[in-house]
Amino acid sequence: MEMANVTFEYLPGTPLAHTALTDINLTISEGDFIALVGPTGSGKSTLIQHLNGLLTPTSGSLSFRGRRVGVDVSPLELRREIGLIFQFPESQLFEHTVADDIGFGLRRQGLTGPEVASRVENALLQVGLDYAHYAQRSPFSLSGGEQRLVAIAGVLAMRPRFLVLDEPTSGLDARGKAAIFDCLDRLNSDGVAILMVTHSMDEVAESARRIIVLNEGKIVLDDKPERIFAHASFLRGIGLDIPKAAELVYKLREKGFEIELDSVSVRSVVDSVAAAVKERCAN
């Protein structure tokens, strides 16, 4: 997926016109795990709505596997390959049963009976919900976290190769968040590319292999997590945090510890810090 010089303006030609994205250049490859971060209003939601053709750039272009979106490939086709999950996706549930709701997109595609049933079962499995226990219940009788997983399953049932999520963990408790991340990690190891919007840096540090920072509609940083957090003061300046684990490393470095970093997940930071401390003691 490639975005070239994409600029997007809301309500063009009116006094309320507002340029939400400016000159976005972005390439997303198969199997990526990307976090898109940025302060509120920086254009994250606007950007991801371009990825499956819900919004069309005011200027610039998008292409998917080398084909121009809107020219060689229609938004409808695009949506089969790229699953987009909005913020608070549980508000889109509408069917009588969980299974029917998850199967909605499949039936739209013209699939029927056993094929739908097996894909629904599979999608529930992917989000970690038990088919026998959930399939025939009303989605409105579930907890908020379960509803969200069901809504995500509704998109996964379409078997997208590329999953885009807008703040999938907002408003969930720690267990709900963990359930979402387990699901995303599993999907990614099955080869599904993931782009998730978030503003919680601690979450990002664990899974993402690439972080894109958006500010005022422009991409300001696009790099590996451990390198992104070297810009700690810049990030704080635009209202973003840096993960606690990364912060610890930078503080220790200031105190003269030599710590190598190849990831900012808590586990690898613990390992590197332990190694550095051991070395210092040995000397």
């Binding site: 499956n52 089969r80 909005f86 996706p89 508000s91 889109q92 997109g105 499949l106 509704g154």
Partner: peptide, 12 residues
């Protein structure tokens, strides 16, 4: 938002 969400999962 709902129209877009349903369109994203195949509604027409």
């Amino acid at each position: 938002k709902i129209v877009k969400a349903q369109a994203s999962r195949g509604a027409r």
